[in-house]
Design a protein around this nucleic acid. Sequence first.
DNA 1: TTATCTGCAAAATGTTTGCATGCAC
DNA 2: GTGCATGCAAACATTTTGCAGATAA
Lengths: 142, 142
Amino acid sequence: MEDRLEALIARLREQDCRITPQRLALLEMLIESDEHPSAAELYERLRARFPTTSLATVYKTLNLLKALGEVTEISFSDGDTHYDAGNPTPHIHLICTQCHRISDVPFITAPNLTAELTAQTGYHITGHRFDFYGICPACQGK
Amino acid sequence: MEDRLEALIARLREQDCRITPQRLALLEMLIESDEHPSAAELYERLRARFPTTSLATVYKTLNLLKALGEVTEISFSDGDTHYDAGNPTPHIHLICTQCHRISDVPFITAPNLTAELTAQTGYHITGHRFDFYGICPACQGK
DNA sequence: TTATCTGCAAAATGTTTGCATGCAC
DNA sequence: GTGCATGCAAACATTTTGCAGATAA
């Protein structure tokens, strides 16, 4: 976790990007939160520490990280774009269609679909995304 | 294919929804096209037959179908929302990150991840979505 | 005939851009 | 000191809403 932060900082420096307090806070929030926050949520939290910060700054940093491949967008059927802190271990998203919570689940069966797909379609496959939709335990009671 | 159209029409009627010429055309376009069009693309094509139609009508119909669970949104990292005509056979999306084409691939290995996930997380799983990203054969030469 | 759908225009929402000032390096 | 980042406001793009007239049932 600490390592991930260090790695991100190094990655930014290597691109001649500056580590401002706002960016550092955003990086920490992205890494620590396992809830895949949206830009608006990140902005809300960031504003607790930097009352004058703006949504534009959040978007600019997110776009920067996206361009570096360090963050992934999860555009999610019901509204805003959420961000996945580039959790480097492969995982599945489990999305509650009621409370909109997104959880990560480590891969249970590592499918070697990739090789099969390449053989079958000729695509050069660079990434993938597995999402499951359902009702989380907490929402099932309601 | 014909059956699917019949089924959709029946479904709409059952909800006291009217089958207008515009809707019928939209349904046909959704079912026939395997390219997962966006609202704007659907509007463009619809306008060829109904020059005075509006984007609002397209959105209203898509939202109706979405609410009925007959159409799925694929919000796709680079721009608009695309629509999947609720192709009833399970399939994988293969998305070219260069030309943005989305292809359907039938499930090769039907993973029974669902049961495993339910056992492990307590979620009541209702759906899923597998997307692979890569470069399609046509774009690899460029 | 009646409730729904259409299509226009306006509004709401989410994201991006331009630019002057401020700050990391 | 230099150049990138911030933060404001304005611009943009996409989607939604309201409503009067049209139309499927």
